[in-house]
């Protein structure tokens, strides 16, 4: 597993590698390059880095204009700001217009802990999932985030990528292939299917180790593509675990991965469903570990939900 690294850095390491072979790759930021990770790109390709200042509507609008003259812009800010303040521009100038703009929202979930609730994005998944033409990606670790750059480049059209500030250990390897729109099985079990995205996948893997010591054999499914969702694999894997499913996401409980998975299972019989998510409240400041504990977003929190569905 090795050292802990953040997805926000993995993505830009991947983008730098991609940009060496593709002159049309640009990065655009709104004066948060050292936070989002885009300063990594700035250092490598200063002539292809555009800083629009603290102006997220303009960040998205300018990126749409760049795309309209043949550039492939990867524009970034903290998710709260690019998705929140930029939303209507994303909606009309990017998604409705079917324009090839890639949006990176960093500091998602509650693990941008010390910055407090104003900076913690918990509604970005719901907002981006709600837009037609938008692909929504959420890599689980550094290795996977690094691969996202070329996945996004190969897909012609709007993409939203969610990254995280918190360094975590790798649970995928550099050799793992990823395919847009496909779920990724990290562990095969039979008692409960734990479906997770982003950093929660790493916590889910830790939870499966706790559960294993108690004799509960969990399947772990990592969802790096939240939209389009691989509903077929999800159904198969959940049914193979007797309909026992726990969905984990570092986002508000409404409109994110949990509800997407739940809708994909409504026609199945005997589903026992649990959700590990933020329970409809905003974040706050604190040490990361304290915040995760407070919101129940921990390996033990996942294990508890898993026990409950298994013994239902």
């Amino acid at each position: 597993m090795g050292e802990k690294r953040a997805t926000r850095h993995g993505f830009y390491d991947g983008l730098v590698a991609l940009a060496r072979d593709h002159e049309d790759v640009y990065a655009v930021d709104a004066d948060l390059g050292s936070a989002t990770g885009s300063s990594i790109f700035q250092k490598a390709f200063p002539e292809r880095y555009i800083d629009v200042g603290i102006a997220e509507q303009n960040l998205v609008g300018i990126s749409a204009g760049l795309a309209r003259v043949g550039i492939v812009p990867f524009c970034s800010s903290m998710a709260v700001f690019v998705v929140g303040r930029g939303f209507e521009i994303i909606r009309n100038a990017v998604a409705y217009s079917r324009i090839n703009v890639k949006i990176i929202g960093s500091h998602t979930g509650i693990t941008a802990a010390s910055d407090g609730g104003s900076h913690q994005a918990i509604a970005d998944l719901a907002a981006m999932r709600a837009l037609p033409n938008m692909v929504v990606l959420s890599p689980c670790d550094y290795n996977q985030a690094k691969k996202m750059a070329s996945v996004m480049y190969s897909h012609e059209g709007p993409v939203y990528l969610r990254t995280s500030r918190e360094p975590v250990e790798n649970v995928t390897s550099e050799e793992d292939e990823i395919t847009l729109g496909r779920a990724q099985k990290l562990r095969s079990g039979k008692d409960v299917c734990i479906i997770a995205t982003g950093m929660m996948t790493v916590l889910a893997v830790r939870a499966s180790q706790i559960l294993e010591s108690e004799g509960i054999d969990a399947t772990i499914i990592n969802i790096h593509t939240i939209k389009p969702l691989d509903t077929e694999s999800i159904r198969e894997e959940v049914i193979a675990c007797n309909g026992r499913v726990v969905v984990c996401e570092e986002a508000n409980m409404f409109g994110g991965l949990s509800e997407a998975v739940a809708s994909s299972l409504v026609e199945e019989n005997d589903i026992v469903f649990a959700q590990v998510a933020i329970e409809d409240r905003f974040g706050q400041s604190g040490a990361t570990a304290t915040i995760l504990e407070e919101y129940g977003v921990t390996p033990e929190g996942i294990a508890q939900k898993a026990r409950r569905v298994v013994h239902h």
């Binding site: 609008g61 300018i62 749409a64 204009g65 795309a67 309209r68």
Partner: peptide, 10 residues
């Protein structure tokens, strides 16, 4: 306007 600025910049 914002998209036009992006086009000109591009």
């Amino acid at each position: 306007i914002t998209v036009g600025v992006g086009m000109a910049l591009g």
